[in-house]
Computed example of a mutant assay.
Amino acid sequence: MNRVRAVLVSVLAGTSVIAGATALAGAVDLPDGPGKQQVIDSCTRCHGMDVIVAQPRSSDEWAEVVSAMVGQGAVLTDEDFEKVVAYLSANVSPEAASAN
């Protein structure tokens, strides 16, 4: 019975996290560009964009992070994976942060 309760709590918590992440997605203004919509569609299913933009990373680091997210259930085609990594690398990197 405890296992069923744990699954139910996880499902309910996930639902509220998704709703919260969707609300936060519009709160962060990302620059337009190829891959932006894939980032919004994929990444904000589990967390807000504020989490992403607060952690600038290099291209290799973004590839590792996005790969890890796919391993945790994010759904991306190979093409979308490349677009997401390229977009984040161009717009949420130490170089992009220092340019602003």
Results as ranks from 00 to 15, higher is better:
L30T: 05
L30F: 06
D32Q: 14
G33P: 03
G33K: 02
G33C: 04
G33F: 04
P34Q: 14
P34C: 05
P34G: 13
P34K: 14
P34D: 15
G35M: 10
K36Y: 00
Q37P: 02
Q38L: 08
Q38P: 04
Q38I: 06
Q38E: 15
D41L: 02
D41C: 02
D41F: 03
D41E: 10
S42P: 05
S42C: 12
C43G: 08
T44M: 08
T44W: 08
R45G: 13
R45W: 10
R45C: 07
R45V: 14
C46K: 11
C46W: 09
C46I: 11
C46N: 10
H47C: 11
H47T: 11
H47Q: 14
G48M: 11
M49C: 03
D50F: 05
D50E: 08
D50T: 03
V51G: 02
V53S: 05
V53G: 04
A54Q: 04
A54V: 00
Q55P: 00
Q55G: 00
P56L: 08
P56C: 07
R57Y: 01
S58W: 09
S59Q: 14
S59E: 15
D60N: 04
D60F: 00
D60Q: 04
D60L: 02
E61Y: 07
E61K: 11
E61R: 12
E61T: 08
W62R: 04
W62M: 07
W62D: 01
E64V: 08
V65E: 15
V66K: 03
V66Q: 02
S67W: 04
S67A: 13
S67K: 13
A68D: 11
V70P: 00
V70C: 06
G71D: 06
Q72G: 11
Q72W: 02
G73P: 01
G73S: 01
G73Q: 01
A74Q: 09
A74T: 12
A74Y: 03
L76D: 05
L76V: 06
L76H: 06
L76P: 07
T77C: 00
T77S: 14
T77M: 00
D78K: 15
D78S: 15
D78T: 14
E79P: 00
D80W: 05
D80Y: 05
F81Q: 07
E82R: 14
E82M: 09
V84K: 12
V84Q: 13
V84C: 13
A86I: 04
